[in-house]
C-alpha cells in the first residue's frame, strides 16, 4: 500500500530536480569580472553602473561587470588558482605582485600602465568615536590613555589592521624622535587598550557600531563614513588625527585572462575611466581620496580634509617588503608587544 506512494515521492523528486536543472543563466553581450577587496563594495557598485552606461553611450556595446569581494590576499590567491578576473583592484601592491610572480598572468610592468602608479584613489586611517566625543579623542596620544577602549582588528589577519598599526607607529615615531623603544612601548599600550581584535576591518566596525563596544574605532576613512550612513550620523562623530598614513590601493588588467577572453579593450577602458572626471567624482562621493582632485567638484572634496600623511615607502618603514616581516611576521614587533587581554 505504501509502495506506489513512495515511488510517487521519488518521481516527484526527480521531476523537481530536472526542473531546477533547466533554469539557465542569461548572458549579456560582454561580461568582465572585477576581483576586488572588501571595503570597495559600495564604490564599485556605483562605478560599475556608471561605466556600463558610459560604455553603452560611447560604443553601443552592452557590458556587464561582475564583482567578487573578499580579503585582498585571498582574492589574489583565487586569481592565481584560476579565478577568471579581467581586472584586479586590490588593497596592496604586494597582492598584485603575487599574481605576477606566481601565475605570470599580469605583466611585470603593470604599475606603469595607468597614472599615479596605477593607484586611481588613495585612502587613509581615521577615528570614529561616540557622539559628542565623550572621551575627548583628538590624536593618537589619546588612544593610550587609561580607560579608553580602542577597537581595531588583528594585524595578523587583516590588511586594514596593518594600516591602523602603521599609522599609530608613524605618529609615535615622529613624536618620540625616532626612538624605537619608546615607539614600541606606545604601540604596546595602544593594543593593551584593545579589548578584542576582530579578524577583519568590517568585523571591527560591527563590533564598535552595532555591538556598542569601545570608545574609538580606528579604521578606513570610507568605512567610517559608511558606518555613519548605516548606523546613524547622530550616534557617532568622525575625528581626523593630525597625522595618519596614506594607502594607495592599486589596479591592474589581468593580461593573460583578457587576451584569452578577448576583453582587453573594455577591461583597459574600465580601469582608465576611473581617472576621468566622472570616475574621480564617484570615488570622492564614496569617501576615497581621488588621485586627481582637480577634476572633482569642491563640495565632494570637502569631506576629505588634508592631513599630514606618511606612506609605507617612508624610510621608517622601507616599503611593504621590509615592513611586513619586521612588524607582522612571526616573532615580529607585533608579536613582541601584544599580549591578549586576560
Amino acid at each position: 500500500m505504501t509502495k506506489p506512494h513512495f515511488r510517487k515521492l521519488l518521481g516527484a523528486l526527480v521531476a523537481t530536480s530536472i526542473q531546477f536543472g533547466t533554469l539557465g543563466f542569461a548572458f549579456a553581450d560582454t561580461t568582465i569580472l572585477n576581483v576586488s577587496y572588501d571595503p570597495t563594495r559600495e564604490l564599485y557598485k556605483a562605478y560599475d553602473e556608471a561605466f556600463a552606461a558610459h560604455w553603452k553611450a560611447e560604443t553601443g556595446e552592452t557590458v556587464t561587470i561582475q564583482q567578487s569581494h573578499g580579503g585582498s590576499g585571498a582574492q589574489a590567491r583565487a586569481v592565481i588558482d584560476g579565478l577568471n578576473a579581467d581586472v584586479v583592484t586590490l588593497a596592496l601592491e604586494g597582492d598584485i605582485n603575487a599574481i605576477v610572480t606566481k601565475s605570470k598572468k599580469i605583466n611585470p610592468d603593470w604599475r606603469k600602465k595607468f597614472e599615479n602608479n596605477s593607484a586611481p584613489y588613495t585612502s587613509t586611517i581615521i577615528f570614529l568615536v561616540r557622539k559628542g566625543n565623550p572621551k575627548g579623542i583628538h590624536d593618537w596620544s589619546d588612544l593610550v590613555k587609561d580607560g579608553v577602549q580602542v577597537i581595531t582588528p588583528n594585524p595578523k589577519t587583516s590588511g586594514g589592521a596593518r594600516w591602523n598599526y602603521l599609522a599609530a607607529w608613524a605618529y609615535a615615531n615622529a613624536h618620540d624622535g625616532n626612538d624605537e623603544a619608546k615607539t614600541k612601548e606606545f604601540i604596546g599600550k595602544l593594543y593593551a587598550n584593545a579589548p578584542v581584535l576582530d579578524s577583519g576591518a568590517r568585523g571591527s566596525t560591527v563590533t564598535f557600531a552595532q555591538k556598542g563596544l569601545g570608545d574609538v574605532l580606528i579604521g578606513w576613512e570610507n568605512d567610517a563614513y559608511l558606518a555613519l550612513d548605516e548606523f546613524g550620523a547622530d550616534n557617532f562623530d568622525i575625528v581626523y588625527p593630525p597625522t595618519s598614513i596614506l594607502a594607495e590601493p592599486p589596479v591592474a588588467v589581468v593580461d593573460a585572462n583578457v587576451d584569452a577572453k578577448g576583453t582587453r579593450k573594455v577591461a583597459e577602458a574600465y580601469l582608465s575611466w576611473l581617472y576621468s572626471k566622472e570616475g574621480q567624482t564617484i570615488i570622492a562621493k564614496n569617501h576615497y581620496r581621488p588621485a586627481k582632485p582637480e577634476l572633482v567638484p569642491a563640495e565632494d572634496l570637502a569631506k576629505l580634509p588634508a592631513i599630514k600623511l606618511v606612506t609605507i615607502d617612508d624610510p621608517q618603514f622601507g616599503g611593504w617588503k621590509k615592513a611586513q616581516p619586521y612588524h607582522f611576521g612571526d616573532g615580529g614587533i607585533f608579536d613582541q608587544i601584544y599580549k591578549p587581554a586576560q
Binding site: 523528486l13 526527480v14 523537481t16 531546477f20 536543472g21
Partner: peptide, 10 residues
C-alpha cells in the same frame, strides 16, 4: 543553491 542541491542530491 537550488541548482546545486538538485544536481548533488540525486
Amino acid at each position: 543553491t537550488l541548482l546545486v542541491a538538485a544536481i548533488s542530491v540525486p
